[in-house]
C-alpha cells in the first residue's frame, strides 16, 4: 500500500522487527481510578519506530498519547503486551531516553546553565565536563547570553529551548516529545521545528513526537500515527515521503504537503468529533 501515487501511504501493521528502536507490541493499559473502577487508557496498541526514524502521533485529546510515551520511558507499565526499547524489554528508566515534557519541567531554582548541566551531573559526569558541555549546548540553542538567568526571567520560547538543550545534552538515542511546541507562537514554533530537525539529523536519534497539530506532524515526520478516540488504539499509519531536508517555513505551501495533510485530516476528523461528543457526554 506504500506505493500510492500520493506521498501519504497507509501502512499495514506487521509484527515489529527485533532491531527497532521502539517496539510497542499489542499493549493494553488500564488505570485504576480513584473510585476503584478500571479505566482503559489504550488498548491493543502496536507501534514500531525504526532507528533514526521520526514518528509523529496525532489523536483527539485524552486518547492516550502521553500514556504511550510514558510506556516507553518505563514510568508506566503495560497491563498486557510488551514494550521494547532498543531490542530490550523496558524494566527501568533507560539512559537512552530523552523526554521533552508537555508542561514546563525546568527546575525554577536553577539557572539556565545549572538546568542544562543537570543530566550529566545526575549521571556522574565530572562538574567541569558537565558545565563545559552545558555551555556548548546553550550556545547551540542560541542562549549564550542567558547562562546565568533563572527560568522565570526567560520568555516561553527561550524556556523551551533550555528544555531542548537539557534533553539533548544527554545525547539520547530515543527522543520522546509531548506537544513540546504547542504553547509557542507561530514564528518561534517554526524556528524551533527547524532547530529540532537539525539536531535530530545530527544526532541520528529516533523520535516520537506527540502533537495535536496535524500540519506540524506531517511537516516533521517520516511516519504519522493516527489514534482513535479513547481508549486509544492505532487507527492508521501514514508514511510521509516529502524530501529532506525540510524547511518548516516553506513546506506548508508545498502542494504535496497540502494533499497529504488533507487525506490524514479526513481520517482524523471522525475521531476528533467522536472524542468531543464523548467528552461532552461525560461532562468533563
Amino acid at each position: 500500500m506504500q506505493l500510492q501515487p500520493m506521498a501519504a501511504g497507509r501502512l499495514s501493521q506487521a509484527a515489529p522487527p527485533a532491531d527497532a528502536a521502539i517496539a510497542i507490541d499489542d499493549v493494553t493499559l488500564r488505570f485504576v481510578t480513584p473510585d476503584g473502577h478500571m479505566m482503559t487508557a489504550i488498548r491493543d496498541f502496536t507501534m514500531t519506530v525504526a532507528r533514526g526514524e521520526f514518528a509523529c502521533v496525532v489523536g483527539p485529546t485524552g486518547c492516550g498519547k502521553s500514556t504511550t510515551l510514558n510506556l516507553v520511558t518505563g514510568l508506566l507499565r503495560p497491563t498486557t503486551g510488551n514494550v521494547r526499547v532498543m531490542g530490550n524489554p523496558v524494566t527501568d528508566i533507560s539512559r537512552d531516553i530523552g523526554f521533552v515534557f508537555q508542561a514546563d519541567a525546568l527546575f525554577p531554582w536553577r539557572s539556565v546553565i545549572d538546568n542544562v548541566a543537570a543530566g550529566p551531573l545526575y549521571r556522574g559526569t565530572s562538574k567541569a565536563q558537565a558545565y563545559e558541555r552545558a555551555r556548548d549546548w546553550i550556545g547551540r540553542v542560541g542562549l549564550g547570553r542567558f547562562e546565568k538567568h533563572y527560568p522565570h526571567q526567560l520568555s516561553g520560547g527561550m524556556r523551551k529551548r533550555v528544555a531542548l538543550a537539557q534533553t539533548f545534552i544527554n545525547q539520547p538515542k530515543i527522543l520522546l516529545m509531548d506537544e513540546p511546541f504547542s504553547a509557542l507562537d507561530m514564528q518561534t514554533r517554526t524556528a524551533m521545528q527547524d532547530e529540532l530537525l537539525g539536531l535530530w539529523s545530527e544526532q541520528k536519534s529516533s523520535v516520537v513526537f506527540v502533537t495535536h497539530d496535524l500540519e506540524e506532524a506531517v511537516a516533521l515526520a517520516d511516519k504519522v500515527y493516527v489514534l482513535t478516540a479513547g481508549p486509544g488504539t492505532v487507527k492508521s499509519v501514514y508514511r510521509i515521503d516529502l524530501p529532506r531536508p525540510r524547511v518548516m517555513a516553506d513546506i506548508r505551501y508545498d502542494p504535496k504537503f497540502v494533499e497529504i495533510a488533507k487525506v490524514i485530516w479526513n481520517d482524523l476528523r471522525e475521531e476528533v468529533q467522536l472524542g468531543q461528543s464523548r467528552t461532552l457526554q461525560t461532562g468533563h
Binding site: 528508566i93 525546568l106 531554582w109 549521571r123 537539557q166 544527554n170
Partner: peptide
C-alpha cells in the same frame, strides 16, 4: 511538581538525587 520529578528521573537522577535536588528545593 510531578512533571519536574519525572523530568529529573529521565535525566538520570537516583531517588536520593531527586530528594536532594528536586523535593527539598521545591518544599523550601
Amino acid at each position: 511538581d510531578r512533571a519536574m520529578i519525572a523530568n529529573a528521573q529521565i535525566l538520570g537522577a537516583s531517588p536520593f538525587q531527586i530528594t536532594r535536588t528536586v523535593i527539598i528545593p521545591s518544599a523550601m
